[in-house]
């Protein structure tokens, strides 16, 4: 539950764990991740490549690629567990109650069918509409996502659309059955900057009008800052920090979030050097003991190498960091200089 909201959450993810069995042992790609999304809320999930953000999204919509599997925890949509449903039932929920938008609009659309046919098929799968009504709804949806000449464009094929227009079609597809939640995985990453701004504005408007909640997975803090209500920051498969967008962006508590925000060049005062976090995110085969961020953390203490921190209140946000525990991080670590 979000503090201060008395609404029942739309989606609750509790202690989610995603594993990949390999010959050399099991990789834990998402480890003990919990969060919730309220109706109509936009939750941004950020992290660098390999942080597990896309896998979290895939686990929620039941599209984890084998051999990846949910090894623990639960996903609850409107009070109903959906992580253990048989494939057919999950397929019904996907589209009807959860829409999905992926990074590359070209791979989300079938090149052999006109976009109208793909929209009508999706609409009729989930809504009891006649062919004519479904076609009308398809045209209405295309108008809504801002495709000029929707009446004629509906019979065109994906290759006849530009990248930005294709992403609009994908958004229309996700909205077909008026889902309550949309999981959008890097929806603007493949697009040019001017088109990105258009797509973000569109997503924001649609969600406001329809009251749709969005889980927005991206590596782009800029997109999050403009779109999300709350942000979850992931690092090495775990949640590092979660809180209202303004506080996470401007006043982060977790040292990783602070480093991440500082490393983004800004248009404010021009500095000689950007803040940098030395080193790189650990590979899944070698996640450090204790807090996964401790080898790169400027504030790490002995406790950080021994015990894994859970999310705890840290100012307005919640952070998985011993700095915010009453007992602190313990004595500072003696460490070799970075880049040795």
């Amino acid at each position: 539950m979000i503090p201060g909201s008395n609404q029942a959450p739309l989606l609750e993810v509790r202690n989610l764990r995603v594993e990949f069995p390999t010959r050399r042992g099991t990789l834990v790609a998402v480890d003990d991740v919990s969060f919730s999304i309220s109706p109509g809320e936009v939750l941004g999930v950020v992290g660098e490549s390999g942080a597990g953000k896309s896998l979290t999204g895939a686990a929620i919509i039941g599209l984890l690629e084998p051999p990846g599997r949910i090894a623990g925890g639960e996903v609850v949509l409107e009070g109903e567990r959906i992580d253990n449903l048989p494939y057919e039932r999950m397929r019904r929920i996907r589209g009807a109650r959860i829409g999905a938008i992926f990074q590359d609009p070209l791979t989300s659309l079938n090149p052999l069918y006109s976009i109208g046919r793909q929209l009508v098929e999706t609409i009729q799968t989930h809504l009891p509409l006649s062919a004519a009504d479904a076609r009308q709804r398809a045209i209405d949806l295309l108008k809504e996502v801002g495709i000029p000449g929707a009446e004629t464009r509906v019979d065109h094929y994906p290759h006849q659309f530009s990248g930005g227009m294709r992403q609009r079609v994908v958004i229309a597809l996700a909205l077909c059955a008026n889902p309550r939640l949309i999981v959008a995985d890097e929806p603007t990453t493949a697009l040019d900057v001017s088109i990105q701004a258009q797509i973000i504005a569109l997503l924001k408007r649609l969600c406001r009008e329809h009251g749709t909640a969005v889980m927005l997975v991206t590596h782009d803090m800029g997109v999050i800052a403009e779109t999300a209500d709350r942000v979850a920051v992931m690092y090495a498969g775990r949640l590092a920090e979660i809180g209202p967008v303004r506080d996470v962006v401007k006043n982060a508590s977790h040292p990783y979030t602070r480093g991440l925000m500082g490393s983004i060049p800004s248009l404010g005062v021009r500095t000689e050097r950007l803040t940098q976090i030395d080193g790189a995110m650990p590979r899944l085969t070698a996640i450090p003991r204790g807090c996964a961020f401790n080898p790169r953390c400027p504030d790490a203490g002995q406790r950080c190498t021994a015990e894994r921190p859970d999310l705890m209140p840290a100012g307005v946000t919640r952070a998985a960091c011993w700095l915010y525990h009453s007992q602190g991080v313990g004595p500072a670590l003696a460490r070799e200089t970075a880049n040795a």
């Binding site: 227009m165 258009q198 803090m221 800052a225």
Partner: peptide
């Protein structure tokens, strides 16, 4: 000006972005 408008507002100053219509 249009390109500058597309830079996301990370400083959260509430600067309004006016997405320009059309594509290259």
């Amino acid at each position: 000006r249009m390109l500058l408008d597309t830079i996301p507002d990370l400083d959260m100053t509430g600067r309004q972005r006016a997405p320009v219509a059309g594509e290259v």
